[in-house]
Design a protein around this nucleic acid. Structure first.
Lengths: 307, 307
DNA sequence: TATGATCCATACGGTTTTCGTATGAATGGA
DNA sequence: TCCATTCATACGAAAACCGTATGGATCATA
């Protein structure tokens, strides 16, 4: 029997919660949907949906099958897109995860162009800075700032993020400004806990690299949290230039240690490793790599060529 | 239209090179096969096969589609196996990669039991010691000795491999036996180039770990090569106990430095990371983990619990 | 509580599709 | 040169499919 049509139908039924709605969507009759689901259940030997007239709920089997079916349908779509008249025309839904601040400032504004170029592709956007659970959440592609250490993921470096050591005027009035990285040891430093480097800050001085073990009484796993903490004068922090330059321009925070450049962070594309990378992932990865290339199409590229 | 049947048919056609053969195999008529392929080509808008009456050759598109189709069919199969009457019954073909020596001695003898337990599953066995290209080769699951460092792969430790420092009597007559790891520096040491540790050998002595930088004039990426080199007296080597104990028992090689245990190597299962690990991979992984567990069903487990 | 609306399952008849047999064209080997 | 084999196509029968109509059940609302 044909499995694809019932599988497609089932996926939509789970997502809409209604046979009738799916029938309308597919320009067919409700009994057709009903029959497809029934045939699917008979074929699998399992009840997939709990019918209660007013509400359709997937059973435990139904939820499991839904996940597998989505995956299988995507694989079939990839096969169709691999050759012939649909070659190179990515379709389906791309689940993209981007850092909160960087994403808002630099990625989201560019997505319109991407969507226009690939009309058969949709984007489901997840914003977050964490490395964990990309696979678990079914993320197809992620942008991450910092060293990628996850096993099971492939990283492709697309640029470098400059950082600045910054503090608010109120903090500097109270505690003075450090005149060297070493002086940070006696300052309140705000740690961003997502970076592997943790409580050690690295700088490039004129005479080579400098590492400082910092201390402080405030740490957070949110990049926006770091910025807010700096703004209200909680301490000194290293913040990507793109995320803080506005505040600097307005005089709300000051740049410190101008002779010492904090070690730049890599900007990477991260995706689950597969033998056949889905077309849609490749399309988005290439798009982003080109957008953020040093001489790419972006007017004000936030990154600099890798170093 | 139904795509699955044509895709299945196409895969078999590529593999057998004949419409007629596939028709017999599927208990149907040759025109049915012919029509399915034609419909598939029409749907994709690409010619998949070059027909020359006596020989069917996949076109470039055909080869590409074949790869994608196999993947998609496997995903569909996984969906079917996830629920209902076929739940937990892995099917299809599992591509397994195992180390040459370890595999021959300890894995292959156990596969019969595995195949008996899962009658709908076939195994395609690749023997090799390298970490590279597991994804490229389409390996579903690999056993590896040593530290797994590949990005894009998930490693699951299932045991530990003891090693012995060994040399042939002929070599020992010529060069004497080292009385401590440090003495190895002035011996001909045979390096196994696949280990990340390279030219540094690690031992556990009574007073803690010892590391020795070794030198030598023979290195190889083949574990059998190391063993042969030892046998013919080329030098001293660290060899897994399971691979050399026979030779030791027959007196063909001698164990050195009995007071210093070479640091054991991890024995790991390695597979590409995915959200939904295929049932067949899970089945094999669990089987192997149980077989090689310290108190597992194997009569003479070659491994010891992790340390 | 009663009524109406909505939703899913099932029966039925007509249409479409599918499939196997028979046949033709082409190629490679004897 | 002839024969055997292979894939493509035509045709008629059989099967599958689909939409309409209908029934049973539940929830919202009066």
């Amino acid at each position: 029997m044909d499995l694809l049509a019932p599988m497609r139908t089932f996926v939509r039924v789970v997502e809409t919660g209604s046979f009738t709605a799916v029938a309308r969507e597919a320009s067919t009759s409700q009994p057709t949907i009903s029959r497809q689901i029934a045939a699917l259940e008979a074929h699998l030997g399992a009840r997939l949906l709990t019918r209660s007239t007013r509400a359709l709920t997937p059973t435990q089997d139904g939820r499991a099958f839904y996940e597998h079916a989505r995956r299988a349908l995507e694989a079939v779509g990839e096969a169709e897109n691999a050759v012939g008249r649909r070659r190179g025309r990515p379709s389906g839904t791309l689940k993209l995860s981007i850092p909160v601040v960087f994403g808002r400032l630099h990625v989201v504004p560019r997505l319109g162009r991407f969507l226009a170029r690939y009309p058969e592709l949709s984007i489901e956007l997840a914003m977050g800075d964490g490395f964990a659970d990309l696979v678990e959440q079914g993320i197809d592609l992620a942008i991450r700032v910092g060293v990628v250490q996850d096993q099971g993921l492939v990283a492709r470096r697309i640029g470098t993020v400059r950082r600045l050591a910054v503090a608010a005027p109120s903090y500097l009035r109270r505690r003075g400004a450090p005149d060297s990285p070493a002086a940070l040891a006696s300052h309140d430093c705000i740690a961003y806990t997502r970076l592997a480097t943790g409580n050690r800050w690295h700088f490039q001085g004129r005479d080579g690299p400098i590492a400082v073990d910092i201390t402080g009484r405030f740490a957070t796993d949110s990049s926006e949290g770091v910025r807010e903490a700096v703004r209200v004068g909680l301490g000194v922090a290293l913040i990507p230039a793109f995320a803080i330059s506005d505040e600097v321009r307005r005089g709300r925070v000051r740049v410190l240690l101008r002779d010492y450049e904090p070690t730049p962070l890599p900007l990477s594309l991260v995706y689950p490793s597969r033998r056949l990378v889905p077309l849609k992932v490749r399309a988005m990865a290439d798009f982003l790599a080109r957008e953020f290339a040093p001489d790419g199409p972006g007017k004000a590229p936030p990154t600099e060529s890798g170093g």
